[in-house]
Amino acid sequence: MTKLLLLASLTLIVPGVLIGCSQQETSQEPVSDPASQTSGETALDTTAETTEQPSGTLVLVANGEDFIREGFTTKDGWRIDFENAFVTLDEVNAYQTEPPFDPDGAATLNATQEIPLLQQPTTVDLAKGAAETAPVPVTRKQAPQGTYNAIAWKVIPAETGPAEGSTILLKGTAQKEGRNVDFTISFDQPLAYTCGEYVGDERKGILTSTEQAELETTLHFDHIFGDAETAAGDALNQDAVGFDPFAALAEGDSLNVDSNRLKAELSAQDYQKLLKAIAGLGHVGEGHCRLEN
């Protein structure tokens, strides 16, 4: 009887010991395997799960580029200079994404890190400062280090201030062939963009510990008025409204229009061009954005 009990015990214990040893070896494998440690996916997952990462400062800026700061000549020959270019930003979020977000594709943004940068409407004047002035600072926030390769932002109607009721308010002077037009053009079309990585002379959004990194919202106003320095047959100028249709609505030397009047008095073709141009304003430097509304 004793021998049978011994037999039964050994039958149960030995396989358990063998399997246990085998599982222990398997569980150690990822730690000792340099190949798995160097994979990008593994590194990102580890980063996302770490609660206390080194952090730096993300600085959000808005940029109307030289077109707004220096002025420019439209595709139809108007020299326009801006006194103000008010834009009201809201709900700006910075993201680290994996895979990197492609605004030209249909895939959704897959964030491994999300930082709310701006959670209340903020109106900025893109015409502020001289031509060589850096983009307008909007806000700054502490954030874990990493590459912030996507940003989402909205343009909404201003609730207060000189641009109240407008998502975008352009004020300035247009000159052509001896005629001067002082203009105030107000748009009320809300916009929501999801953008990929900034494209420009420098890289932006790469935040290392204790440093600061910029993220930029860029608006390309040459999409509305066209650019005399670009070929007339270029898609930019083909799709732009120009300034002639606006000038035609001026009363003497003064033009003061809002979206309702533009819809009522522009030709249907020009109005559709204008809506499309406004929708395409949002960029990240030269990088692309997806219009979400």
Partner: peptide, 19 residues
Amino acid sequence: TQQVLLGAAGVWGFFGTAL
């Protein structure tokens, strides 16, 4: 392989010894 062959060989060895 350890989980299958070594386990089976071990069990059979002890079982045979006991028999």
